[in-house]
Amino acid sequence: MSILVLFLVGAAVGVTTVLFGFGGGFVTVPIILFVDAARGPDALRIAIATSALVMLVNAVVATSATRRSVLAHLRGRRSLFVLLALGGAVGGVGALFVPDVVPRWGFVAYIGITVVDLLLRPGFLSWRGAERRPKTPSGRPLPDGWGIPIGGIASFLGVGGSVMTVPMMRRSGMDMSVATSLANPLTVAIAVPAMLVASAFGSAVASAPGLVGTVDVVSALALLAGAIPVIVLLRRRPPRIPDAVHSWAYLALLVVAATAVAVTG
């Protein structure tokens, strides 16, 4: 796959980062899996590690451009961030040493279960749960105790955590625009330890030219070159999307990502 194609995919990743809180995992894992398919069983580990780097940088850029009034929802949540990071480290280690079929089909199953949940359980799609969803956020939509499982699953599969955090925040009463914006700083907490693990220990699992640990550096840079300008632009001039359309688009993107990984497998 050419650098130009990766650059264009990166631009699409920039859009998903801003609009859906996906720092890149749901797009980059299938793409890097395709790019590095020739590396055999190591391809998925490389995809997950590269995704962690792309997600980290994109999430940092998006967070830095997010309004402080929005980020205030996470004020005082140090314990949650610590537990997300701990889970991210554990999941990152696990991804290095399990058979590649486990995270590959775990990715598909994880998204499939989430899609069914979002469709059937009230509170995410506005037309299904508007009457039950509180009009204003209440309590703590993300209890601290969820930090380790969210971080662990997200880094193990290379998905960033937004597929769990966005629906939980949405069901607490947040608009999609707020929930997806808050997913970015939460992704940073998960992606930092996952990337460090992949960089420090990945070379013992997969070693080849162009890799740092299990990170495909060239592909990651091409994706980031396309993503970062788009993130900055959309944060400065955010599009106005009806809440119901926003939630359905989120759901559709999950289906596309799961299908791409299943087909590549």
Rank of each mutant, 00 (worst) to 15 (best):
M1Q: 11
S2F: 03
I3R: 11
I3Q: 13
F7K: 12
L8I: 09
A11Q: 07
V13R: 08
V15C: 00
T16A: 03
T17F: 00
G24S: 10
T28S: 08
P30T: 12
P30Y: 09
I31C: 05
L33A: 14
D36L: 09
A37I: 08
A38T: 14
A38N: 14
G40T: 02
D42V: 01
A43K: 08
R45E: 00
R45T: 00
I46S: 01
I48F: 08
M55L: 09
L56T: 11
V57I: 14
V57R: 10
T63H: 01
T66G: 02
V70P: 05
L71R: 05
H73G: 05
L74P: 00
R75Y: 13
R78I: 07
S79G: 03
V82N: 06
V82G: 14
G87K: 10
G87W: 01
A89C: 02
V90E: 03
G94W: 09
G94M: 09
A95V: 03
A95N: 06
F97E: 02
W105E: 02
G106C: 10
F107W: 07
F107V: 04
F107P: 08
I111Q: 00
G112R: 00
I113M: 07
V115K: 03
L120I: 12
R121S: 08
R121W: 13
R121Y: 08
P122N: 09
W127I: 14
R128W: 12
A130M: 07
E131V: 13
R132D: 13
T136W: 10
P137N: 12
P137A: 15
P137S: 11
S138I: 10
R140V: 12
P143F: 12
P143R: 09
G145Q: 07
W146I: 01
I148V: 13
I153P: 10
F156T: 05
F156E: 03
L157R: 06
L157N: 15
M164G: 13
P167V: 13
M168A: 12
R170A: 08
R170M: 14
R171A: 10
R171I: 15
M174V: 07
D175Q: 09
M176D: 06
S177K: 13
S177C: 14
V178N: 13
A179Y: 09
T187W: 00
V188K: 05
I190K: 08
L196S: 04
A198N: 02
F201I: 00
G202T: 00
G202N: 01
A204G: 04
A208T: 03
G210P: 06
G210W: 06
G210L: 07
D216N: 11
D216T: 05
V218N: 12
S219I: 03
L224N: 15
A225Q: 12
G226Q: 11
I231R: 06
I231S: 07
L233T: 06
L234P: 01
L234Q: 03
R236G: 04
R236S: 01
P238L: 01
P238V: 02
P238S: 01
P238D: 00
D243Q: 02
A244M: 01
L254Q: 03
L254N: 04
V255F: 15
V255D: 09
V255Q: 12
V256L: 07
A258G: 10
A260R: 06
A260T: 15
V261G: 08
